[in-house]
Write a protein that binds this DNA or RNA. Structure first.
Lengths: 354, 354
DNA sequence: TTGAAAGCGCTAACAC
DNA sequence: GTGTTAGCGCTTTCAA
């Protein structure tokens, strides 16, 4: 195919050879240099009022948008954030993402979302892939405890913010999370106050710091009321529905079974509740229940579930904001730990007198 | 500060000047050219078995990973997918994302997730931002009907897949969705079969094709049973809880009110149900209800809600797969429309005899 | 089979 | 104020 020789005949809006208008096209059109255009686009350096106006007009007219990939290559960092979470369908996770997204979009950042399904291998793959994509920061609820995974981020000066579990690092990490111990203590206190003495806990893998902390806090809280949390009534599974169901069923088979159950995650509890109902028991009549992050998008669930409500949106927003602040002040190299107050909401599922 | 003059003294694993090991580092170490390393990394072009082995070993040893940004710039397309949806907290949306993500990660793609909250302005911003980020494809449940927004994608040959609403384009788009008309007809049929005659519909903005189709299908389905869907019983709002609540309340104030309500989205219905309960009425005793995409993550909702269940995960996966196929066969420029069969699940919320 | 070199679109010295 | 130019890290002709 022959090149069109009389290119000038083609008006400015004519078919573009390949893709979008770019810096040099504008420069050529306006008889200025690419750097002048670049400077006005970025508002950096001086440009005379008149040329600026012409350039802005041309940008408007042509709909020019800078190629973010080229910018990122030059800058060696993309205006993107990676968010790595267990499961986007989970209310906590989706709210965290929304929080991250809000702050990100305010800063013209885009957000990569990655579901690990609590699979350590997938987490590793994503963490690496995001690094290859030169994300400006990483927000992660990690399930693998191996902190070496994040070393390349430290080396590259890319902020990593943990919002849930902590890997086994000394001090070189950022954290935005609630005080899990305190939250669990509060629930323990509440169940004890309600008169329960046979109390069980459903929790996740204890090598995950959240599972460990929530269990510890719960045990301590019960101890404060002179109640022992027996080992046999600490059900350790995965943070999944099936685990809660299975463990609760086993408990219900025994001669004595708990009158109150606290779960370290919502799905664990939903599984347990299913087991309780299948046995023909009622909540809170026969068994009181509570958990972390009960989230009922429908607003129709009865009974309402007593719950530690993490400020998930805020956690996401704060995590993203931390990254943005680091981005602005590259010099500030300290690590930040933001620990939020837990919020406990009492609902019917644990209230004896209704 | 003075440069270290005896650089060779520093072992290979020593502190890197800046960031990660890259192609030219490997090339230098192994006394081969960057192109040879590049060829073995990508498995393109011929490389002798021996050098290939040495290079792979070095990659393993150094943990080299190609910089995706640089690749993207060269390729003029990033290995990323954009997903633009109303609200990640919605069960339909989160499942779509998971479907997209599954296929994407199988292809070493990353996924940008964007919540529009049904705001046309935000949708536009995101669509443009994703283009600037050179996404390899776009999966979108659009709310704005202006097809010009997507023209730059067409021009650049970037596949756009609609999974919900259609913009007002002629034929040049891809679609993966269920047959909304058919699904709504089925619900209409069911409610008529249950003996209902005063039937109402809650729907979204009628300029959105899904809202329009669902309404049309429902009307046609009722007509098949000789029932007219009165205009006054078509409640048009936003696809949000508040709309459902507000409209249902109005209906409940009237002398005659519907005995069955069908909602074009889950949140619309949840709002309506709240209004029904506040009025002291029961479901399905007083009013039968059904909707699109009732999703109960807890599994504890009673009554279960009769619903058109879109295969959301599959929709996402098919949409992503379509993009991947286009990516492989750039030559294939046709557009695809994949219409899936609707799946209707009858539950207690609409069953008279329980 | 391998290497040299030209970009991909942009930013930022540095020179004028 | 403005322009020239050297890369950012990679892929890909084109020669050798």
């Amino acid at each position: 195919m022959q090149r069109e020789p009389r290119a000038n005949v083609v008006p400015a809006m004519g078919r573009q050879e390949r893709g979008a208008v770019q810096l040099k096209d504008l420069a050529k059109q306006l008889n200025v240099s690419v750097s002048t255009v670049s400077r006005t686009v970025n508002g950096t350096g001086r440009v005379s009022a008149e040329t600026r106006k012409r350039i802005l007009a041309a940008i408007e007219r042509t709909g020019y948008r800078p190629n973010e990939i080229a910018r990122s290559l030059k800058r060696r960092s993309a205006r993107t954030l990676g968010v790595v979470l267990a499961d986007i369908s989970n209310g906590f996770c989706s709210k965290v993402i929304k929080g991250v997204e809000k702050v990100a979009s305010e800063n013209e950042y885009s957000v990569f979302v990655c579901n690990t399904d609590e699979d350590v291998g997938r987490e590793e793959d994503y963490v690496r892939l995001l690094l290859q994509n030169q994300v400006g920061g990483l927000v992660i609820a990690t399930v693998g405890a191996d902190s070496r995974l994040f070393q390349p981020y430290l080396d590259a000066g890319i902020p990593v913010v943990f919002i849930d579990n902590l890997p086994s690092m000394a001090d070189s990490y950022n954290l935005v999370a609630i005080d899990n111990v305190k939250a669990s203590r509060a629930i323990a206190q509440h169940l004890a106050d309600q008169g329960h003495r046979q109390i069980a806990m459903l929790t996740g893998p204890l090598h995950q710091s959240t599972a460990a902390e929530r269990t510890r806090g719960f045990r301590e809280g019960l101890a404060d009321s002179g109640i022992a949390l027996e080992d046999e009534w600490i059900g350790v599974g995965e943070f999944k529905r099936e685990s809660g169901y299975r463990i609760m069923r086993e408990w219900l088979e025994r001669e004595v079974c708990p009158t109150a159950v606290f779960a370290a995650s919502d799905f664990l509890l939903y599984g347990a509740i299913q087991a309780i109902y299948e046995k023909g028991l009622t909540i809170p009549g026969d068994i009181a229940v509570a958990c972390f992050d009960a989230s009922d998008e429908t607003g129709l669930l009865r009974p309402g579930i007593t719950s530690v409500v993490q400020p998930a949106f805020e956690i996401g927003a704060l995590a993203a904001d931390l990254i943005m602040r680091r981005e602005r002040n590259k010099e500030v190299k300290r690590f930040e730990k933001i620990v939020l107050e837990p919020n406990v909401v009492l609902r019917e599922s644990s209230l004896r007198q209704l």
